[in-house]
Design a protein around this nucleic acid. Structure first.
Lengths: 137, 137
DNA sequence: ATAATTTCCTATTGACATACTAGGAATATA
DNA sequence: TATATTCCTAGTATGTCAATAGGAAATTAT
């Protein structure tokens, strides 16, 4: 398993907001109830989404969260990378990493590079809109 | 990062054996030296490969390991699953798991199912032969 | 036979990340 | 002013991963 609970919760939170923000700010409590996720843990997840500008937050009574942009501007790959860090299947492919000394002769590197491409390409093609709307992708 | 050190070492071990077994049994020590992997840890990895019939082992002086079949009969996906367990990107897709109660309404499930397919399809298409031979895949 | 080599077996450990909990402060509205 | 909500800091339990340690069993080369 490679996609963390944090990423999965973040996606479900964003989708839930996308589906309910028509009525104004959506309180975290409501999402936690609908999605059956611990409020306290969800707070931690959502904090990062706010900090990175994906969500607008409003404190106090009547407050909550709403999306900062239209839902087709939220790329799925970006969201996951925001929560989990690089999607690279092996450490030596993570960005900002010094080159592995075995790189030249490594028989497995091309395999991992290809896998990385396939995963990135797949996740890059979807946005929140796709997930909120679709029964099937 | 999703591919464990165990899987990566297993692949490198098998490839190394494939490239050197012409001379007879290949001792673990030699592979560990060439691949710069801790002998003791490699033992643990290799033990599983033997137990599952991928490798034949010969004890004592002049002993070591060799492949049990021809190298194009070693599927990469199978090897990784042997070491790491299911490749499913999320727990709810792991085989032998009771169905998630939210399954019907889950907005993210199709995403994970699709990702799982893409990863499986990619890794299924290669064998040890491809890795041992290829500079590029 | 014997020494050397090699696999096999059991146990332990340190480090780290993940998922989650707890309590309350700050803020805004009804 | 009461209430509802986000925000902030801290702590914790659990588990997994990668690696180490020490030696027993087996087999061969000499």
């Amino acid at each position: 398993m490679m996609i963390s609970t944090k990423s999965r919760y973040a996606l479900r939170f964003l989708i839930d907001i996308a589906e309910h923000q028509a009525d104004g700010y959506v309180p975290l409590k409501d999402v936690a109830l609908r999605q059956e996720i611990s409020e306290k843990y969800l707070e931690i997840v959502v904090k990062e989404l706010v900090r990175d500008g994906l969500l607008a937050a409003q404190r106090g009574k009547g407050g909550g969260y709403r999306l900062n942009r239209s839902s087709d501007e939220y790329n799925i790959k970006s969201i996951i990378e925001l929560m989990d860090g690089p999607l690279a299947p092996v450490a030596c492919l993570e960005p900002g990493r010094e080159a592995c000394p075995r790189q030249g002769s490594c028989r497995t590197l091309p395999l991992w590079t290809g896998l990385d491409k396939v995963i990135s390409a797949y996740l890059s093609q979807f946005t929140l809109t796709d997930l909120a709307a679709a029964e099937e992708i």
